[in-house]
Design a protein around this nucleic acid. Structure first.
Lengths: 366, 366
DNA sequence: CTGAAAGCGCTTACAG
DNA sequence: CTGAAAGCGCTTACAG
């Protein structure tokens, strides 16, 4: 087994030319039904599998695109969601999609970055979607390639986050700032005055959320209260550890606190754990909001008020933009912004207000 | 931009033959340093990206393998773990790895299955790992291909699970039966006599767990108590809904119950939710064990006693087996079994025994 | 150390 | 409807 049956051999055994076999394979032209049957039979009998290399070489296209997740595990539910969305869209548009992961250090000079062949070489994939954590060196290396690609933009990291402008072209973003404003305004509307923000501001997505938080606090004449220590932990816990540290710090700071805006749901869960350890309840003692709306956000008791980020839709937009990019022959395409929505659940109440016992009876195992 | 710079053009501009450019590209033979520098400069200046098609055609190998996840989302943490393990191993062994998802119906005849080009065609990937839910029709279609592949075997579905033997070749399994025995024996050791099992037995992995459960119960002279309704829900909730239904049924059955062996952790979490809704506590009122050791199993209060399945290691073994398979030129290779371990946490106690208040103070948000 | 040439397995005008 | 031939972009003996 595993012999290399080629189109030539099929042609010989079927008593036809290789062109005819090719036509049968691609149903590209009318072939006499009898000939067709004969060729098909030989293909089956020989277990012939066409070599895509040959076709691709002639076609000058791989008819395949790649989704690249950099410095993140596939287990990350956020990026997995984007990935699924892109895959569905592109598959349904008739493209083979393939995923690849990429690990790199932000300090390696762009020229030294060891990128996988699927992006450095022509012909394996026609274009790619870049997702995950994207540092400037990666961006530079990828631009050097002059290959068609689009970006999931929210996770571009590096440089001063305050200066970071959204890329005007070839990127898909989800809306960050307005949703964060709405979240803080929700807290203010519930009479909270001692509202903390907790997240590592070196991450631009957290920075943008913090900026909205500060703006609302200042407009409302409230004090800015932040825990913004650099995050050392493993991203795999999605910030849970960070949230614990943050809450410990806040409770031990001697400053007032009635509500916490956690930079993402993981941080919120961590903060929640710290509260529980102290015997404090959400939202009775402290209100808590997160960001992302991961699956677990519905499972806590009470469920978490947070911002829903439609990851699948982000993926679809990435796929769509890439397809356009492939046709655009290198012309830059305008970036896109996917809207997000605040979803109010049970983790916010006015300070001092107590929840009805009924809603407490809900399940919360994991 | 995006012009197709070829090796020929580089050669011409550098005033050398294409063979020399190829040598520079692959550092395959000694090249005069001066020539080397000249060629490198031209490559950079032209932004030349080698076309992998050409190389692959000559090499008769893609130097790339594919991990295929069938009928599962990448968001599934279990399969993501396997995937990460395979990726790490293969990448470190110098192979490009790429992932592909595959959706199919178990009722489509094998011959009609629309498999992606990456498996049907030669030359895109040299071999693949098949994971996810695998029905007989897929297996048949894939065997037809006579392409080098290995299988993650635990999720092969279809036919009578009671008759299903583990594949003797080209598959990686994790240990199921002994771990399940140990789990039930643990419950028995804690003096439980009314021990239920809950899972859909059409899934062979659940069937194997149930078989071990029955064996231990019979050996111990205890009654077999099972909830085994077919599962209609979405696999994305990993069985949580099923667990709720199961627990409702059990509690409403009028039969005794002091412990439940849930087919997996998701089912355990669902059962737990149902218990909480009734105001019942784990393990004070009912002991609960799961299977898989998903991340959330550590986060419940108390954390869940379950069986740890080392998904990353399973992935590594799959990668390793595939590499051997590639060398084996079609010869079948013996299957492998990855060991699992029962991890005792806090969700089991003797019937009626109450937990210390201290362990209750642990966090459980999320 | 280097180049001309053959050949990898296809597709596609072109001619019949 | 069909076949012989050119050519896609590489690598690799072979000869120098």
């Amino acid at each position: 087994m595993e012999r290399n049956v080629t189109i030539k051999e099929v042609a010989r055994k079927a008593g036809v030319g290789i062109a005819t076999v090719s036509r049968v394979l691609n149903s590209s032209a009318r072939v006499d039904p009898k000939t067709h049957a004969r060729v098909t039979a030989v293909i089956r009998r020989l277990g012939y599998r066409p070599n895509a290399q040959g076709r691709r070489l002639v076609k000058r296209a791989a008819e395949m695109v790649c989704f690249i997740l950099s410095n993140r595990d596939f287990v990350n539910p956020f990026h997995s969601g984007i990935l699924c969305g892109a895959e569905r869209f592109l598959a349904q548009a008739g493209h083979d999609v393939v995923f690849s992961s990429l690990r790199y250090s932000s300090s390696t000079p762009a020229a030294q970055l060891a990128l996988p062949r699927i992006v450095t070489h022509r012909g394996i994939a026609d274009g790619f979607i870049l997702s995950g954590t994207i540092y400037p060196n990666l961006l530079e290396a990828v631009d050097e390639l002059r290959a068609p690609y689009v970006l999931f933009g929210n996770n571009i990291v590096g440089g001063d986050p305050a200066d970071r402008e959204l890329r005007a072209s070839d990127a898909v973003y989800y809306e960050d700032r307005e949703a964060s404003r709405a979240l803080v305004e929700l807290l203010v509307r519930h009479q909270h005055r001692a509202i903390w923000f907790a997240a590592d501001l070196r991450m631009p997505w957290f920075y943008r959320r913090a900026a909205s938080y500060r703006a609302v606090m200042q407009e409302s004449g409230l004090p800015v209260l932040e825990y913004t220590q650099p995050y050392q932990g493993d991203y795999r816990d999605y910030g849970v550890r960070y949230g614990e540290e943050a809450m410990e710090h806040i409770l031990g700071s001697g400053q007032p606190v009635t509500a916490v805006f956690a930079g993402n749901d993981g941080i919120a869960f961590g903060a929640w754990k710290a509260l529980q350890r102290r015997g404090l309840r959400v939202p009775d003692d402290i209100s808590l909001v997160g960001f992302d709306d991961v699956q677990e956000a519905r499972l806590t008791e009470p469920p978490l008020t947070t911002v829903h980020v439609p990851t699948e839709q982000i993926g679809r937009e990435c796929g769509q933009l890439l397809l356009e990019k492939l046709k655009a022959r290198g012309r830059p395409l305008p970036s896109r912004m996917v809207p997000t929505t605040v979803v109010e659940r049970g983790s916010v109440a006015a300070p001092g207000q107590v929840q009805s016992p009924e809603s407490k009876a809900q399940g919360q195992a994991s």
